[in-house]
Design a binder for these strands. Structure first.
Lengths: 200, 200
DNA sequence: GTCTATAAGGTGATAGAC
DNA sequence: GTCTATCACCTTATAGAC
């Protein structure tokens, strides 16, 4: 992308983060240089440091923004209080939002080891918060007798791992639509926790 | 590790691959230098090129060796012909072998994007072969009426993703033994494909 | 707000001594 | 079988011009 003469802080900053997100998702944090990111935006490498103090902070910001956005959007979802229905809402939301922001999701899972210990802790707290949202639904289901789950912590981890898997193979325009995929995965999740089919 | 005077090709080669596996699993292929790998074995960087033509081939060999070993060990497992029992064998085998070689598994999933297109294809063929093993069990189960699965390809991917998740959180000496974890995951998998509990 | 130039050091890979 | 020295190049980050 060629540099536009009218570039200013407010527009260039987001462009830098978008370019970094795309490149890091494709090649990995360690494999992408500040020069490559700058070139993608149409800048020289030195100019990037107007928008981030260093490369590490740029990575942290991508992951932090993603997870905070995920938590915010989820928190706005209206829940029904019926564990089975809420679990379905969670599964469909997770698959849908993962597919919508595949690059950010990929980075959040793949680049954890490239964070400094302090930054890792920041991200871990957010990740655990999201996991707890699912675990709460599972706890509700177990307490009300809707679900049969021996360990809600493990079940939450297992379900999220299973749903995350979609991103590794799903391609737009393939054999199945997003909704068809979500329906199949929801069915597997539903049965894995011993829930009825919701039509009883 | 200090260099031993008696080092020869036959012992140093494996040591180089072990060091590379450990370091790449921890920091990532792009982040690890040939100098670091050499230092871990007690060599100078130049000496590594007696054991690999280049860094890329070293990565390929780690991934290829791992997948070929996985397929070989699996192929030696005796199957019963009862889909439910065979699915249980697969689940327990997968969790067990993933935990036994966590570094190799991690690399095989995380470093795919650092392979050249040709090498990627080599690894993809092996990965799909392993997936097909699970899919065959699912097909058998659907055909014999043991399982209720709308799409065996998706189910195979979903199950493997779920089982792979164990490696991201399991730590030796934690709350649950390997067998306890495997039992809980097997129970979730079993129900997700609509199989009975095997005591009927 | 962006550029050019530069510092200080790391990179994969090879040549030739021993 | 391994080392030292080296090539050509890339890296992050900063300083100062414009």
């Amino acid at each position: 992308m060629a540099r536009k003469t009218g570039s200013h802080s407010e527009v260039t900053g987001p462009l830098v983060r978008q370019a970094a997100q795309r490149l890091i998702a494709q090649h990995g944090y360690a494999a992408v240089s500040m020069r490559q990111i700058a070139a993608e935006v149409g800048l020289q490498a030195g100019a990037l440091y107007l928008y981030t103090p260093d490369k590490q902070t740029l990575l942290l910001q991508l992951m932090k923004d993603h997870l905070e956005d995920l938590l915010r959007v989820w928190s706005e979802k209206p829940l029904t209080g019926d564990p089975t229905r809420d679990l379905e809402v969670f599964c469909r939301f997770h698959i849908q939002s993962n597919l919508e922001r595949a690059d950010a999701v990929f980075i959040a899972y793949m680049e954890l080891r490239n964070l400094t210990p302090e930054n890792f802790e920041v991200i871990e707290v957010l990740r655990r918060k999201y996991e707890a949202e699912l675990r709460n639904i599972l706890e509700d289901g177990v307490n009300s007798g809707c679900f049969t789950v021996p360990d809600t912590k493990l079940a939450a981890l297992a379900i999220i791992a299973m749903l995350n898997g979609v991103n590794t193979w799903y391609r737009e325009g393939g054999r199945l639509s997003r909704d068809a995929v979500a329906a199949i995965y929801w069915d597997m999740v539903r049965r894995s926790v011993g829930a009825g089919n919701g039509n009883e």
